[in-house]
């Protein structure tokens, strides 16, 4: 990344922060977190509830926002690329501006209600930290996927449709498929298969990361339990975190590679 990347990202963030949807996104998380604290009163329950909301909402909003942004900015991207600038700098700048803004709005939204409350213990503070990290990783992954689809499809409806289908598959259908595999092949050793299946779904990885730390086996699900048994608590956290970071790099780098050759 060079100074041009940061300049493009800086102006992009300025543009997004003035956008009413970014403000609404932040207010949404703020109201939900505040509401949870008021109704449940226990910070451990709030973090678990916020986790459930985060792993569903963040991928959906990120992938839709990313797609719409890329398609709506096509002429502006053209204008940037008619300047003496590398394509990779423009791509990185756009990616940074969208992910930074969404991550900032999410972090502010869930942090402000904590400012006048204390988290009960150190584990909850760590859980809150993992919640923020998973939220940021999911934002980067799904914005990266949305950019990738937008580069491959010049048709906006097609790109947006693919984005929403991806979210539906990873957030909803994937769990059903995993369950079906468990039911059909329960006579066979499935540990490694389950771990592989979890690694292939970033939403699953984020869920496992958060639940392993809180150590609630009832909510962990089959894959989470396999993860913990196979790796042990600490290694499972490191493994899921590393896998999430690799997931961030995958769609981003594939998108950037395709963007270098893209006709605009």
């Amino acid at each position: 990344m060079n100074s041009t990347t940061y300049k493009i990202a800086g102006f992009g963030i300025k543009d997004f922060l003035r956008n009413k949807w970014s403000v609404l996104y932040s207010i949404f998380f703020l109201l939900v977190t505040e509401g949870m604290f008021r109704f449940s009163g226990q910070s451990s329950k709030v973090i678990i509830s916020m986790m459930s909301i985060t792993i569903f909402i963040i991928p959906l909003i990120s992938i839709i926002f990313g797609s719409s942004y890329f398609y709506n900015s096509r002429e502006f991207i053209q204008l940037l690329l008619t300047q003496p600038v590398k394509r990779s700098s423009v791509y990185q700048g756009l990616f940074l501006s969208v992910t930074t803004t969404l991550s900032l709005c999410f972090t502010i939204g869930i942090t402000v209600p904590l400012l006048w409350r204390n988290l009960d213990n150190f584990t909850q503070q760590i859980s809150y930290f993992y919640l923020v990290i998973s939220g940021i990783c999911l934002t980067c992954i799904f914005v990266g996927l949305s950019f990738l689809y937008s580069i491959y499809n010049s048709d906006k409806s097609k790109g947006l449709g693919m984005s929403i289908l991806t979210w539906l598959f990873l957030a909803v259908i994937y769990d059903g498929i995993v369950l079906l595999i468990v039911l059909l092949f329960n006579d066979y050793p499935l540990e490694k298969v389950m771990i592989a299946l979890s690694v292939m779904n970033p939403i699953d990885l984020a869920r496992i990361l958060l639940l392993i730390n809180i150590d609630i086996s009832a909510l962990m699900g089959y894959t989470g339990a396999v993860f913990e048994n196979f790796f042990g608590n600490f290694t499972a956290i490191i493994f899921s975190l590393t896998s999430l970071f690799l997931w961030v790099l995958l769609p981003f780098s594939l998108g950037m590679r395709k963007f270098q050759k893209m006709d605009l």
Binding site: I8, F11, D15, N19, N72, S73, E75, L79
Partner: peptide, 28 residues
């Protein structure tokens, strides 16, 4: 060495005119 003016222009909607000029000026 090229100045380009396309058929239609679209810029980030929430930036000010001077910010768009500054951005391109920074890039150059």
């Amino acid at each position: 060495n090229i100045g380009y003016m396309p058929q239609s222009a679209k810029f980030p909607p929430n930036l000010k005119v001077k910010e768009v000029l500054q951005l391109v000026n920074h890039i150059r």
